[in-house]
Amino acid sequence: MITLRGLTKHYGRKRVVDELTFDVAPGRVTGFLGPNGAGKSTTMRMVLGLDRPTSGEALVDGRRYAELRHPLREVGAVLDARSVHPGRDARRHLLAMARSNGIPDARVDEVLGTVGLADVAGKRAGAFSLGMGQRLGIAGALLGDPGTLLFDEPVNGLDPDGVRWIRQLMRSLATEGRTVLVSSHLMSEMQLTADQLVVIGRGRLLADAPVTEFVADDRAVHVRLPDPGERQTLAHHLTGEGLAVEERGGGELVVTGGTVEGVGDLAHALGLRLHGLTADAVSLEQAYLRLTANEVEYAAPAAGRRAGR
């Protein structure tokens, strides 16, 4: 469980993180989204005690990170791959890490096997590819078998197999009841892994909601009817229910504010012939872009207006 309360960070006069308050609950994957520079990494660094908050606090299981007696046994984190000395080999990097927190040396080979680096354990970290560096970071995060895990842009530099592997890893970690916070600037990535989404822009909280709710809110339904008359009938009834309907070429209606199920049931009740009925697959991405675009467009946006919905 990660708890942020009014977490704020200024660098000089620039507010990088601005009054962030939200919880990251155990047992699910929480996606931490925002454009580059939104403050995701800084927030994670404050959770790990690397950066000191200007005000507010970041707690892990109710305690500040620095108060944890064996922090690596409670919090695992993958920040950037450049936090490893390039001249040290992978095994001894992890050995030094394990010894700092009273973790047995044998655990090192175990996690090296888990992430698939056993064969290159004696190789200097500086000679690793970006993907191998990410795997080394993940090995470190898993080392202490922690209940809370933070991943900062973990799929960067991974090949498609690696991406699939890390998605499964995050899902299984959450299923085991751990708290998993994953940052990304790609909504499409989060759509596949996250249960809960926290979106920030310019350091402010824009949204904190389950993925399903995100989708339901803005999902457009595309329905295709070959008969123009029947199209008019359906459009009329949908508008009557308060939904926005837009007619497109190819006999397609785009319905926003409704669900696939609702539109389908209505067409069935009216006895209309359909040639297609789909929900907009990328609407989550669009919802996210709309959310963050607002942050960029207006100098003084109503922060928190969408928060906590």
Binding site: R69, H70, R73, H85, G87, R88, D89, R92, H93, L95, A96, M97, R99, S100, N101, G102, I103, P104, A106, R107, E110, T114, L142, L143, G144, D145, S172, L173, E176
Partner: peptide, 29 residues
Amino acid sequence: MTATIGPPRGGGLPGAVHSEWTKLWSVRS
């Protein structure tokens, strides 16, 4: 995830010293 890390042994200052000792002799410089 198989976790055979056992109960905490060490850590604290002795753990930190052991860690630094490992780091010191694991770089060529």
